[in-house]
């Protein structure tokens, strides 16, 4: 893990309530707000994402990781989570931070930032709603259960996710892992942490992500 800049717990208000937001890095600096993948992939990648934010802090860039309604410390039940609430809450979290805010979204996290006022977007292996639904269906099929790997996900949420696509306009940089055949602006070395059976980290990948985001943001300031 990278050094240990102070981490603090902030909160943000959105029309549906109040959620916690992890914050770190220097005040007044450009801020990267992180959007984790949904469901199990979010659990597997949270530690890696927070480590990226720590490494960004070492570049002089602030970081924020908001809980979304129905995730993390949220009082909302996962079964009551909706895509529109996530988008709404994420936009509110961005507005709470003050400009400029840069988005760092991994996988299905790239489906919730469409309404957010952002200076730029940096996506790692962004995933369409259709691909996500296919994976969730496969997990349910293989496990033989009604929930999806322990997540109670409403049919409304699944229906809303099905046509969802990541934003492709504005200042956008798409990174993928080496070996991924889909189009990308850059390829980074590392394992797909979101696929593992257990949460894991990959310090080389996290450093590569942080370095690429820092260079991307600094290129805009130049």
């Amino acid at each position: 893990m990278a050094g240990t800049p102070a981490v603090r717990i902030d909160h943000y208000e959105w029309p549906g309530g109040r959620e916690a937001m992890l914050r770190l890095g220097p005040p007044g600096a450009p801020t990267v707000i992180a959007a984790l993948p949904f469901f199990e992939e979010g659990n597997r990648t949270r530690a890696a994402m927070v480590d990226v934010l720590r490494r960004l802090a070492a570049h002089g860039i602030a970081g924020a990781l908001p809980d979304l309604p129905g995730t993390g410390e949220s009082l909302t039940d996962t079964a009551d989570a909706t895509l529109s609430a996530w988008r709404n809450a994420f936009a509110a979290a961005c507005a709470h931070l003050g400009e400029p805010v840069h988005i760092c979204a991994w996988r299905s996290g790239a489906l919730i930032d469409g309404e957010a006022p952002a200076a730029s977007r940096w996506y790692l292996a962004p995933q369409s709603g259709e691909a996500l639904i296919r994976e969730l269906s496969r997990l349910r099929h293989l496990s033989g259960g009604t929930d999806i790997a322990g997540n109670a996900i409403s049919e409304d949420l699944i229906a809303a996710l099905a046509p969802a696509e990541p934003i492709t306009t504005g200042r956008l940089r798409v990174a993928r892992l080496q070996g991924d055949a889909k189009p990308a602006d850059c390829l980074l070395p590392g394992r797909p942490l979101w696929r593992g059976s257990e949460p894991d980290t990959d310090s080389a990948l996290q450093q590569a992500v942080a370095d690429d985001i820092a260079a991307w943001i600094k290129s805009m300031l130049a």
């Binding site: 296919r134 496969r138 997990l139 293989l142 496990s143 790997a149 696929r195 059976s197």
Partner: peptide
């Protein structure tokens, strides 16, 4: 395990 099978196939 079955969770990992899903990850392997999708990857």
């Amino acid at each position: 395990d079955s969770m990992a099978v899903a990850g392997v196939l999708t990857e």
